[in-house]
């Protein structure tokens, strides 16, 4: 079975995949035990699977494992922990910016990507950056406030 060398959250690992087209999302979840990125649509429409690839937000459900080789992959597990959250995660917790929370990982990774490129985005820039991420519970206002909390810091 073909073997792929990946670098996820700064750690090198190898995975065996019978299909070079297997989406990175399934590899992360089932082969590396990283459950933060979620399956939402498999179509690149909702953003629940968002991770960073070379620092940019990417849809792990649409990224074949073969194209992830040699690139720096960051999942939400690479940011912080409940005890020591990353500043953006801490802002989400402070704002209680989640209900079911199924979209939250994707939201945080999309916002992380924005903040790495634009450290002080305007509210409109945050809205545009998250426009492709769906929240079904309607926590948009809180998510926006959480990202702006970091943007202003």
């Amino acid at each position: 079975m073909p073997r792929y060398a990946l670098r996820v959250n700064g750690r090198a690992s190898t995975v065996d995949c019978w299909d070079p087209g297997e989406p990175l999302l399934y590899v992360l979840r089932n082969k590396l035990g990283l459950h933060g990125a979620k399956f939402g649509c498999g179509l690149g429409q909702c953003g629940a699977c968002t991770v960073l690839i070379d620092g940019r937000a990417a849809r792990s459900c649409m990224t074949p494992v073969s194209q992830a080789v040699g690139r720096a992959i960051t999942t939400i597990e690479g940011l912080g922990t409940p005890e020591r959250p990353d500043p953006l995660e801490a802002a989400f917790i402070t704002e209680q910016a989640a209900q079911c929370g199924y979209c939250t990982s994707g939201m945080i990774m999309a916002a992380k990507s924005l903040l790495q490129q634009t450290s002080h985005p305007t509210p409109d820039q945050v809205k545009q950056a998250l426009a492709a991420n769906i929240c079904r519970c309607g926590t948009h206002t809180r998510i926006l406030n959480a990202v702006l909390r970091v943007a202003k810091a």
């Binding site: 990283l34 459950h35 979620k38 399956f39 912080g80 922990t81 989400f92 990982s105």
Partner: peptide
């Protein structure tokens, strides 16, 4: 604060999925 939110915001919360 809700007890489930920190894990939900750090990718640690275990969903049925």
């Amino acid at each position: 604060l809700r007890p489930d939110v920190p894990a939900k915001c750090t990718g640690q919360h275990t969903y049925v999925q």
